[in-house]
Amino acid sequence: MSDASMKPGAGPKSAYFLSHSDEAVERRTLAVLVDNEPGVLARVVGLFSGRGYNIDSLTVAEVDASQHRSRITIVTQGTPHILEQIEAQLLRIVPVAEVIDITNSKSGIERELALVKVAGTGEKRVEALRIAEIFRARVIDTTNESFIFETTGASEKLTQFIDLMRPLGLVEVSRTGVLSIQRGKEKG
């Protein structure tokens, strides 16, 4: 972490006490690039539980086998002060190479995939299919009384889709959690 990237206090008096009750909670997506060594996910998750930070979603997979690199995308919430701490604490973990704030990066892209099972017949079944088309969800399994839809997009879009399916016979949902990447030709 560079000290230049930290927000210094401003103004003549600098008693910027971190009494955070007046700071609004924000949601943030962080990409954490790590050495893919045993226990690294436990370290990252343990940091969140040990220090009382939130995890809304978490995805992890190896992304570069030759370099043993894994990418962990974490969606978290906190006040700006807590979010700054989360980044700094993540970088203290020895096998963490890099932390990218996807939310505040102009080139950050977030995507999620959901599998949504809906059971119903008649009018409701037709309506489910119609809405799925609008959301460009694919049907990946069908029986006379059910569909499984596969849909990708921003998390809010998936939530919206799922909410619309609820009165139409929503049975169950499986979501990947958020994945992230940076636009453009550069890496990471």
Partner: peptide, 24 residues
């Protein structure tokens, strides 16, 4: 309450953890 604060630390997570400082 009335001071500016400079904080030298090799561990960036120590800075602004408890008290916000002016010059990290």
């Amino acid at each position: 309450p009335d001071s500016k604060k400079i904080h030298i630390d090799i561990d960036a997570s120590s800075i602004n953890k408890i008290v916000r400082v002016d010059v990290p």
